Computed example of a mutant assay.
Amino acid sequence: MNKIKVHISTITESIEDEKDFTVVLQNTEYVIGIRVRKQQAVLLYGAISKRADLMLPHTLINKILEPLNYRVTEIVIDNLFEGTYNSLVYYSNGKNIYSVDSAVNDALIISAINSAPIYIVDTLLHQYGTKIKN
């Protein structure tokens, strides 16, 4: 599995459904949209803008892991099943590395809170992303 680093470019309201938003991930070569519900988009915006009042549910994870000296090291969007992207959140204490399955919207919020890098497997990005023209 090869993974490619991406970043959150923007969050925009979906044209197809007013209850959905699209999180746009990109790097220098590709762009890909991840659909999330409005509530998750608001929480993600709160995490990106560091608004503590909007990211309470996801900061709980840090409060549990900090005393154990674990931190989030990265998230990897690794699968698409029935139209839903799935991901892994990686945690490490410097000696051990663990991964936890996560809904992609939760993983993106956790990444934003922890300033952890976001990766997507190359097969997903190449198949579902759009190549940016030079």
Rank of each mutant, 00 (worst) to 15 (best):
P67C: 15
S102H: 07
S102D: 11
E29R: 10
A107Y: 00
D106I: 03
Y30E: 09
K38G: 02
S9I: 05
G83N: 06
N2G: 08
G83Y: 05
I110P: 00
K5T: 14
E29A: 09
I77F: 08
I15R: 12
H7M: 15
I120P: 00
N27L: 01
A47Y: 05
Y45Q: 10
D17S: 13
A52G: 03
A41T: 06
V42T: 06
K3D: 05
Q39H: 13
V42L: 09
S115Y: 07
E18M: 13
T59D: 07
K131F: 10
Y70E: 11
N62F: 11
D20A: 07
Y91H: 12
E82R: 12
A52T: 08
I77Q: 11
E66M: 05
I15L: 14
T123W: 12
D20R: 03
Q26D: 12
K5A: 15
I75S: 01
L25D: 01
I48E: 06
N134F: 03
K131P: 02
D20T: 03
D106K: 05
Y98G: 05
N2R: 15
L56Y: 12
I75W: 02
V89F: 08
A116M: 02
A112P: 00
H7C: 11
R35E: 13
D106R: 06
R71Q: 15
P117Y: 08
K19E: 13
N69D: 15
V6E: 14
R51H: 02
L25W: 02
D106C: 09
I97M: 11
N96W: 03
R37Q: 13
V23Q: 03
Y45M: 07
L125K: 05
D53C: 01
N93Q: 13
T10G: 07
T130M: 09
L43V: 06
N69G: 08
V36Q: 05
N62R: 09
Q39N: 10
K19D: 14
I110Y: 00
T10P: 00
V42R: 03
N114S: 06
G94C: 08
G129N: 06
R35G: 09
Y119M: 04
I32C: 05
A52I: 08
I15Q: 14
T28H: 11
L60S: 05
Y119N: 02
V6K: 01
N114G: 04
V76P: 04
S102Y: 06
Q127K: 14
K19W: 04
Y45S: 08
D106F: 00
R35N: 07
T84Y: 11
R35V: 15
I75T: 11
Y30D: 02
Y70T: 11
L68R: 14
Y70S: 09
L124P: 02
D122Q: 08
S14F: 10
I120C: 01
Q26M: 12
L25G: 05
T22H: 06
L65M: 14
M55K: 06
R35W: 13
V6S: 06
I4E: 13
V89Y: 04
V24I: 13
K38N: 07
P67K: 12
L54Y: 06
S14P: 10
I4S: 14
Q127S: 14
V42M: 10
N69F: 12
A103L: 10
S14G: 13
M1C: 06
A47R: 03
Y128D: 07
D17I: 07
A103T: 09
H58F: 12
H7Q: 14
D17A: 03
I61N: 04
S49W: 01
S115T: 07
D53K: 02
G129R: 03
K5I: 15
